[in-house]
Design a protein around this nucleic acid. Structure first.
Lengths: 345, 345
DNA sequence: CTGAAAGCGCTAACAC
DNA sequence: GTGTTAGCGCTTTCAG
């Protein structure tokens, strides 16, 4: 903050021999001020280089005009897209966006959320860390009636607005697609099952198998944390089975890629010998070779929706909560395209 | 912000029959307060669920504890990495980070910067939009002595802290590498020359040619905005020359990729027939096939350094400015590796 | 249509 | 070591 004395409404008032309240009203376009004086006041304000002090006005109005957003990691494409979407609508509505990242650590998440609270954000948008298991820090927001919106990774036991992707449907469609392509033994590499997203993806997969009369072989399902290394390991494990899969639905694109590279190095042809699909439509999935079939999650739109939701809550104090489920999009690319039939279904 | 009456220091004071200033002092660990009273006060504060109102304290202290950061686009890997780095050190130092994106539009950038100003950020970290040409909005910060730090895309005419990558050296090393690999006619796809980064990369390229006694043929240099489409177009243009290049140094990875795909479709073998290098080390450059040689820019470290610099300026009011030049790293991958000699030089 | 006065919650001289 | 007082810059009754 600068140290020179910034002009205040009082300075403007003195200059014009009127009161500060009139200046305040004029600057806020209060209809009770005549057009003439308004113009005069605005002109002087401009000439003095006046800038309203939002800190003071926020204090007075008990409103910070800030929306907090906490994500596991800022530089992951999906999350940065969500942030981008939030920023987009928040900015237009006159809100600042303050960000923090939990690094997927429960401890840091708790700290951050408390700090957001003391910093008086008007609302909080959050996707919880992978291993957060206690949610008191978030319940605090609910208790104090500060709007809270979950996106992507939500907490089932907290009743509030949520905006998620239809992971079940995504898992279902991806699996249906593999079946349509003629794959017979479809494996699945799943993420931590305490997270709803990964849990749902797996269940979508199981349901698709069931509906198509395909036997669900649990030995074909592996659960881990879906890092690049996890993908390589999973490939080794799955392919050394007595009866290995001929297609693998990976819980994210990262593992789809590392798994694919491993298999290619081992001489498997993709998609002829083995079909692979990922999840999330990371930018690289389109440009690797073979390109990876995947499910697109509308990150930017999620961010926009989350911001719209929270702003409505902030401004209307409405008390009904909704869960918005955004549709996913199946993107068929080379890694699973044997040229059979068409889209899923 | 919640509507129920949050407890204030006055409530705590009343509870204990002491004055609000004592409470304030105790909570701020002022040494003039005895340990006993401090403990008592803190205990009561806790039991009442007291949270300091930073808005009020900020107003009083004329300090917002906020650092603004504006980037062209949040969901570009390089920029989100920088944000991540800024957040990392700012958070630890007790600052909030508020973000905005200019979408590479000068008009939006001006709006944002003004809004950051009225919102009284303590300092601003910025990478300017591609076509920003007038810098009055930024000079405003200088004039008011609000710390300003440029990263990556800096404005030469504004004297302030800057943290950039050695683009000249990057361009030089990449070109030297191509020469070492035996390429004879090396073209360059450059970005807007009003941006120092792209200007320097091109000059590094020219200097490398010169030092190796290679004729600098201007017809092999194209300038555009480096979108994916620009890459394809550039490939068409360059390859239809009388005497086309046998290697192309692209101003970024995006164009390197699109150009590569185009050439591959036309039957060129990479790197045998044509060598390609990019710039920035986007995540995809490692995983596409062939993988793309490139220059790594340390985004996260840049963000950390930028935050450290600005916090020092905020807290010490020192008036000397520095330009930190971070080293780049040449990453040799398949797209330019013909197995000749070793690293650059 | 405009002004006077009070106060948002906190901090910092200045007293004692 | 603690209390009194004033004020950061703005908004908003209440009066007129």
């Amino acid at each position: 903050m600068n140290k020179n004395t910034e002009p205040t409404i009082h300075d403007i008032a003195r200059e014009l021999n009127i009161s500060a309240s009139t200046v305040s009203r004029a600057l806020n376009n209060n209809p009770r001020i005549s057009l003439k004086t308004k113009e005069k006041i605005k002109a002087v304000a401009d000439s003095m280089g006046y800038r309203p002090n939002t800190l003071a006005s926020n204090l007075r109005n008990k409103k910070s005009n800030r929306i907090g957003i906490v994500v596991p990691l800022i530089n992951r494409h999906f999350f940065s897209s969500v942030i981008s979407g939030v920023e987009d609508v928040a900015y237009k509505a006159g809100y600042n966006v303050v960000i923090s990242q939990s690094n997927d650590l429960a401890s840091k998440e708790i700290e951050i959320v408390h700090s957001m609270f003391t910093n008086r954000v008007d609302g909080l948008i959050i996707s919880i860390a992978m291993q957060t298991e206690n949610f008191d820090h978030l319940k605090l927001f609910r208790k104090k009636h500060i709007p809270l919106v979950f996106f992507d990774r939500a907490v089932p036991e907290i009743e509030t607005d949520k905006i998620v992707v239809d992971d079940f449907d995504g898992g279902f469609r991806v699996t249906q697609h593999l079946i349509n392509q003629g794959y017979k033994r479809i494996g699945h590499l799943a993420g931590p099952q305490n997270l709803r997203t990964y849990f749902d993806r797996k269940n979508g997969y199981i349901e698709a198998l069931k509906q198509n009369g395909v036997f669900y072989d649990e030995s074909l399902v592996l659960v881990n944390t879906l890092t690049s290394e996890d993908g390589t390991l999973a490939a080794q494990q799955l392919m050394s089975l007595q009866n290995p899969p001929d297609a693998i639905f990976c819980g994210n694109d990262t593992t789809a890629l590392s798994l694919m590279i491993y298999l290619r190095d081992k001489g498997f042809r993709i998609p002829q010998d083995i079909g692979i699909v990922g999840f999330s439509n990371e930018p690289f999935s389109k440009v690797v070779s073979p390109s990876i079939s995947t499910i697109a999650q509308p990150g930017f739109e999620m961010g926009q929706k989350a911001a719209e939701l929270i702003i409505r809550k902030i401004e209307n104090q409405e008390r009904t909560y909704q869960t918005i489920v955004l549709p996913t999009e199946l993107i068929i690319r080379e890694s699973s395209d044997r040229g059979k039939s068409g889209q899923s279904q």
